[in-house]
């Protein structure tokens, strides 16, 4: 039994190594599929982030903007990416955009509430102190609000990136590349398990490595949050997720709870992300 399992694992690894790159078919080896996968996911995440930041800022500056935007975001959240891939097909064909547009939207949807709540998290007394010291709105944004928001934004980014990397595989069904194509055409269509396993393992690894990079980035960007994050990891992820926990303090309304929220989420894994990602939809 155990010997069989080892044999099987060895077969999978051998296939992976043998097919790492195929000189005859430069687009179809494991490595090109992996780079395709990375291109599609990172492009989506990046575009989502680039859209979420200014939109989030706008929502914080012009408060009435946020409720309608949040409603739109929540509606979008309910739309499955799989269906969106097919709906995009007539317009974007087999270009990267068929996958990137829905996944970038997904990233935007997950990130936007985190950006807004992150920026709003600054305790009132800290904001007042900054004003009293003569900080203008722009300086306040750069020196006070953004640093506080970074951990929350990164928490959202972690949720979005793990989900995106896993969802890119589905794009193979509409004919796009990535590790999903390895699973679909090399594995399933040929009734051969090794490519499927290689595809799954590499997707998971890619997700974990990306997550680790984001954790590292957060530690570098917010050195003050390190100790705390570890100690209080039991508390839920970014912003409003905590607010929706019945027993937790309400959304950071009072300065006191806002402060707790700043100390609270900081270190969040993609696991707690289920709540992070979800919590905010619920506030609408």
């Amino acid at each position: 039994m155990i010997a069989e399992a080892w044999d099987w694992a060895a077969r999978v690894v051998e296939w992976g190594v043998a097919n790492w790159s195929r000189p005859g078919e430069p687009d179809r080896g494991v490595l090109p599929r992996l780079t395709e996968h990375m291109r599609l996911s990172y492009l989506s995440i990046l575009i989502g982030l680039v859209l979420a930041l200014p939109l989030g800022l706008a929502c914080v500056r012009w408060k009435p903007l946020y409720p309608p935007v949040l409603t739109g975001v929540n509606v979008l959240y309910a739309v499955p990416s799989i269906a969106l891939f097919f709906l995009m097909l007539p317009y974007t064909g087999f270009s990267d955009w068929t996958a990137v547009v829905p996944l970038a939207l997904y990233t935007l949807v997950v990130l936007l509430p985190n950006v807004v709540d992150g920026l709003r998290q600054v305790p009132d007394h800290v904001r007042q102190a900054a004003v009293a010291m003569g900080f203008g709105p722009l300086r306040r944004l750069v020196y006070v609000e953004t640093p506080v928001a970074v951990p929350v934004i990164i928490a959202g980014l972690r949720v979005a990136s793990v989900a995106t990397i896993s969802m890119v595989s589905v794009a193979s069904l509409v004919g796009l590349g990535g590790l999903g194509q390895l699973i679909l055409s090399d594995g399933f269509r040929r009734q051969f398990d090794a490519p499927i396993v290689v595809g799954i393992v590499l997707t998971v690894l890619l997700a974990f490595v990306t997550d680790a990079v984001l954790v590292l980035a957060q530690r570098l960007l917010t050195p003050w949050a390190r100790e705390d994050g570890g100690r209080r990891r039991r508390r839920r992820a970014a912003g409003p997720a905590g607010a929706d926990t019945a027993a937790a303090p309400t959304a950071p309304r009072a300065a006191e709870t806002a402060e707790a929220a700043v100390r609270r989420p900081v270190r969040t894994g993609p696991g707690t992300g289920h709540t992070a990602e979800e919590g905010r939809s619920w506030t609408s």
Partner: peptide
């Protein structure tokens, strides 16, 4: 629990589906 859930989240669904179907 959290680690397992993290792992499961990163799994590509079609990979899991196709692998189970093969088996």
């Amino acid at each position: 629990t959290t680690s397992l859930a993290n792992f499961a989240r990163a799994l590509p669904t079609i990979g899991v589906l196709f692998l189970i179907v093969l088996a």
